Simulated scan of single mutants.
Amino acid sequence: MASIAHNVEHVLDRMVSFYSQRLRQVDVQKYFLLGKELGKGGYGRVILANDKKTGQRMALKFIDKSRNSQESYLREFSIASLLSSHPNIIGCFEVFFKTTFNLVFAQELAPVGDLFSLIIPHVGIPEDAVKRCAVQISNALEFIAEKGLVHMDLKPENILVFDKECHFIKITDFGFAKVRGTVIRSMCGSKYYMAPEMCAMTISGGLVVDGSIDVWAFGVIIYCLLTGKSPWRLASLDDDGYKRFVEWQNNVKMNNPPEAWRKIPTKIQRMFNGLLAIDYSKRSPSTKVLKYIRGSWKEEPVDSAKRKEGEDPIEMNSSEQSEDSLASHLSTSQSSSVSITSTLNSMSSSLLTRNTSGSQSKISPEAEVDIG
């Protein structure tokens, strides 16, 4: 394991060095027609763009120079490029440059948007779509782990959607990604999805980065997709929802779940208790979900409830907690023995059929932007 981490660190260092020599300042208006803003955060923003020469549509990520170093920008681009060969990780164009105020790189465009936008409050998304998402995210996380990396900020906003039924989704945004084994001394990512070991981290002690951090976030995401709610605000005993979950998990009988978990079928509760094990050393791999695909994940069918205009996609479970929406908080924060491939092949086509016509992990040379 240590050698894998060492090797990927070496590869990333070489990639950063290579890209730094090719990084040039350009006039973005000269080469691109810029469209609407697709998203923004503490790093900067993502904008729809058309290459004037080829007509290729893409998403340009503008990273504010005043808030991010060139080194971190190149490292993010290198990690994205390294992982983009996977069908469930966003494709990365070989287009990167700097402007007067920004560092920029291009990625493929997801036509539907992000997974967060599909969640109906208190409802979630259809069960079959949840299962499709779970399998694809698990697939991508296994690949990321094999490369010796940890995403560190897995959340619905960082999962892009290519069709509304979620046959085809991709993980994006590797700005917080770390090599496994790295020691961090401050929290990173979005608090709703942070693992308890990160929430309890001290600056002096730090935390050794491990793939189980991504698995925890994965478990929370599945819960949100199933219910349209977040199980807690923060994985800390100061949070009532989380405290009740810990008490339940520590009860070996597991026959009296907190109210927030009572509509989850008993068998699927076991899946969650693996993915969301408090002790990270006992946490299941992401591939745990593959054992549960054929069973029911919801006790009640999804109704046809429509989101009210302006209503936030996910709301809190506990009435004792703040009425502040998850969306507002997020806007201010910044190997299993089961083969996934064989499992996917054995599943029914109605559940896992994908439209892979939109898949593109690398863009052909003729589609690259000529900035020379």
Rank of each mutant, 00 (worst) to 15 (best):
A2F: 13
I4A: 10
A5M: 12
E9F: 08
H10C: 13
H10G: 14
S17T: 07
S20Y: 01
R22L: 07
R24S: 11
Q29K: 08
K30D: 09
E37H: 11
Y43I: 11
R45M: 15
I47L: 03
N50A: 14
K52E: 10
K52L: 15
K52M: 12
M58K: 06
S72Y: 02
L74E: 03
R75A: 04
S85L: 14
H86A: 07
H86D: 10
I89V: 05
I89S: 01
I89A: 05
T100D: 15
L103Q: 07
L103F: 13
V104N: 03
A106M: 05
E108D: 15
L118V: 01
N139M: 13
N139V: 04
K147S: 07
G148W: 06
V150G: 03
D153M: 02
N158C: 10
L160N: 01
D163V: 00
T172S: 12
G175V: 06
F176M: 12
A177F: 07
T182H: 10
R185G: 12
G189K: 11
Y192E: 03
Y192R: 14
P196F: 08
M198D: 08
G205E: 15
V208G: 13
V208A: 08
G211W: 03
F218E: 00
Y223C: 00
K229Q: 09
P231R: 03
R233A: 04
R233P: 05
A235S: 15
S236T: 13
S236Y: 05
S236A: 15
S236W: 07
D240T: 14
G241A: 10
G241C: 04
K243D: 08
F245V: 05
F245T: 00
E247A: 15
W248A: 02
N251Y: 05
V252H: 15
K253A: 14
M254I: 07
N255M: 12
N255G: 03
P257H: 10
E259W: 13
A260Q: 10
W261T: 03
R262T: 15
R262I: 09
K263E: 14
K263T: 14
I268C: 00
M271T: 05
N273C: 13
N273I: 01
G274P: 02
L275V: 03
R283L: 03
S284F: 13
Y292M: 02
I293P: 01
I293N: 01
P301Q: 01
V302P: 00
R307A: 00
G310R: 00
I314T: 01
M316T: 11
M316Y: 02
S318M: 12
S319K: 02
D324T: 05
S328K: 12
H329W: 10
H329I: 07
L330C: 06
T332P: 11
S333D: 02
Q334G: 06
S336I: 08
V338Q: 09
I340M: 09
S342N: 12
L344D: 03
L344Q: 09
S346P: 09
S346R: 15
M347N: 06
N355R: 11
T356H: 06
Q360N: 07
S364H: 13
S364G: 10
